[in-house]
Structures are given as structure tokens and as C-alpha cells.
Simulated assay, not measured.
Amino acid sequence: MGRRASRRTTTLTGFDDALPCPCGLGQPYGECCGPAHRGHASATAEGLMRSRYAAFVLDDAAYVLRSWHPDTRPAGVEPDANLRWTGLQVLGTSRGGLFDAEGMVEFRAHYRDAGRPGEMHERSRFVRHDGQWVYWGPILTDGPLANI
């Protein structure tokens, strides 16, 4: 019986589907965030948030913009050559499941900026738009706009 050749593909960004996904779940990219980057909808708000983090790691600005709600989406995003994303921690979620219309994901994303370590901590709001999860924006937790 002959051995089956392993099927290895790479993305438009050159990332190998067989490598661990940058989102940190430990699954191969081709089975984790890769399908979302190729146009398959994420089933949960957390799944979308993880795929967005992976897109930032891979400098996939097109996906970052596609997964952003059109009412809050910027005109563009530019990768920073000095910034390297190094890890993701999901701290908590609220709603954002298969039957929800909104959800929240709190996370901490670690990076190195010109060699110096840093982290971004955010509580993000996700909503359904045309039946798919999209990123709305950060949830303000203090200040004059927090209750809007």
C-alpha cells in the first residue's frame, strides 16, 4: 500500500496550512483560522476575534477590513513593519454564540514593537451583519462615552 502524500498548502500571505495557527488554539492553521481567511464565516464571536488576530499576525489587511462592520470600518489598515504580534490570551466572552446577535470578547494580545514587548488589552463588541459575525469596535469601560 502506497503512502499518501501530505497535502500542504499555503495562503496568499505564504503561511503554511499545516503550521500551528497564530491564534493560539494549537490547531493547524488550515483547520482553524485559515477557512475564515478564505471566506468561510466564523461560527462565534470568539472565532472571529481569533481569526482577526491571526490576520494581524499574517498582515492580511484585506481580511481585517472584510471582518469589520461597515459602519465602523476605517478606510484602510497599514501593517507596521516594526510590530510583531507574539501571542493571544482570550480572557473572557459574553454571548457571541450560534444563536446570538451580539457578543463580547475580552482579550490580551502580546507584541514586540521595535524589539520592545508590549500588550494590547481590549473588550471587543461583535455583531451579526448580513448573517455573519463582524467586529464592531472596542467597548469603552470608563470615561464620558462608556454608557453610549
Rank of each mutant, 00 (worst) to 15 (best):
G2H: 14
R4A: 06
A5P: 10
S6H: 12
S6E: 15
R7I: 11
R8E: 13
T9E: 14
T10V: 05
T10S: 12
T11V: 07
F15W: 09
F15T: 11
D16S: 08
D17H: 06
P20K: 14
P22K: 05
G24T: 01
G26P: 02
G26A: 09
G26E: 00
P28E: 13
Y29C: 07
E31W: 02
C32P: 10
C32K: 01
C33M: 08
C33G: 00
G34W: 05
P35C: 03
R38K: 11
R38M: 06
G39N: 08
H40I: 06
A43C: 08
A45S: 06
A45T: 06
L48Q: 09
M49C: 01
M49L: 03
S51R: 12
S51D: 10
Y53K: 02
A55D: 04
F56C: 10
F56N: 12
V57C: 14
L58Y: 02
L58M: 03
D59V: 11
D59Y: 00
A61S: 13
R66N: 05
H69V: 06
D71Y: 04
T72Q: 03
T72I: 01
R73C: 01
A75K: 09
A75C: 04
V77I: 08
E78W: 04
D80E: 12
D80N: 12
D80M: 03
A81N: 01
A81F: 04
A81S: 14
N82V: 11
R84G: 03
R84C: 11
T86E: 04
T86F: 07
T86W: 00
Q89D: 13
V90E: 02
V90Q: 06
G92V: 00
T93H: 00
T93I: 04
S94K: 11
S94E: 15
S94G: 08
R95I: 07
G97H: 10
L98R: 15
L98G: 11
F99V: 11
D100Q: 00
D100L: 02
E102I: 13
E102N: 13
E106I: 03
R108T: 08
A109Q: 02
H110Y: 10
Y111M: 04
R112G: 09
R112A: 14
R112F: 05
R112P: 03
D113K: 09
D113V: 05
A114F: 03
A114C: 07
A114K: 00
R116C: 10
P117E: 05
P117A: 00
M120G: 15
M120I: 14
H121F: 11
H121R: 09
H121Q: 12
E122S: 02
S124G: 05
F126Y: 14
F126Q: 04
V127Q: 11
D130P: 02
V134Q: 09
G137K: 00
P138G: 15
P138F: 01
P138Y: 06
L145N: 08
A146I: 06
N147Q: 15
N147F: 15
